[in-house]
């Protein structure tokens, strides 16, 4: 069985499926960051804005990922682009919620102290708010990334390609080795994403915060 699975990975179309999967996930994640981060920055000082963002994010979480992908079908048709739009929509809520709460939860006293030291609004954002909120923001990006890699598997149902193609092929043709090969590839990709972004998250935690976290323990 193992040999048969490895044979699937040696197929000429495997690298293409893997490439599609990574491309779908990566582009969706980047576009989602490019949309969610400016919105989070804009509403960082507004209570109402934060409330709206969090509620939109929560409703977004309640919509099943399969539903969002399937709904892209009547509007954008079959294909890679359609899947990309749906995956981007799915990737936004976790980033928006975390960035918005992360920025808002920065201690008001710290911001006051920075203002007292003569820092401008922009400087406070760049040197105080963003570094302190960075771990929370990255946790959101990590959640979103893992979820996007998982949902990209479903792109196959609307002709978006990716590793899900192998699962569908194996399932409909009753080829257990193709089914397992696709499933294992997707699972490994998701776990790598989870671990990789965890490392990134730690790397972006400012030294001072790490010390503070340790002290609290």
């Amino acid at each position: 069985m193992l040999y048969k699975i490895l044979e699937v990975y040696a197929r000429p179309d495997f690298p293409e499926k893997l490439r599609q999967h990574v491309l779908l996930s990566l582009v969706a994640l980047l576009v989602a960051i490019a949309i969610a981060m400016p919105v989070a920055l804009m509403i960082r000082n507004s209570r109402l804005g934060a409330l709206i963002a969090i509620n939109i994010g929560n409703i977004g979480r309640a919509v099943p990922s399969l539903a969002i992908l399937a709904l892209a079908l009547p509007f954008f048709g079959i294909g890679f682009g359609s899947a990309l739009v749906a995956l981007t929509a799915l990737a936004i809520p976790p980033i928006l919620i975390n960035a918005s709460t992360g920025l808002r939860e920065v201690d008001k006293g710290v911001i006051d102290a920075a203002r007292g030291m003569g820092l401008s609004g922009g400087q406070i954002l760049a040197r105080i708010q963003l570094p302190i909120a960075a771990p929370v923001i990255f946790a959101g990006i990590r959640t979103s990334a893992v979820q996007t890699v998982a949902s990209a598997t479903l792109a196959t149902f609307i002709g978006g390609g990716g590793l899900g193609d192998l699962i569908v092929e194996g399932y409909s043709r009753r080829g257990p080795e193709i089914l397992l090969a696709g499933a294992l590839a997707v699972a490994i990709l998701a776990i790598i994403t989870e671990i990789g972004f965890g490392v990134l998250e730690r790397a972006f935690t400012p030294k001072g915060l790490k010390i503070a976290q340790k002290r609290r323990k």
Binding site: V146, V149, A150, S151, T153, L154, G164, I167, G170, Y171, P176, L179, L180, G182, A183, L184, V186, A187, A190, I191, T193, E194
Partner: peptide
């Protein structure tokens, strides 16, 4: 938790 659902379904039915 991090295994995508479609993949987990596929592994289980195998």
């Amino acid at each position: 938790y991090s295994i995508p659902s479609l993949a987990l379904f596929a592994i289980l039915i195998s």
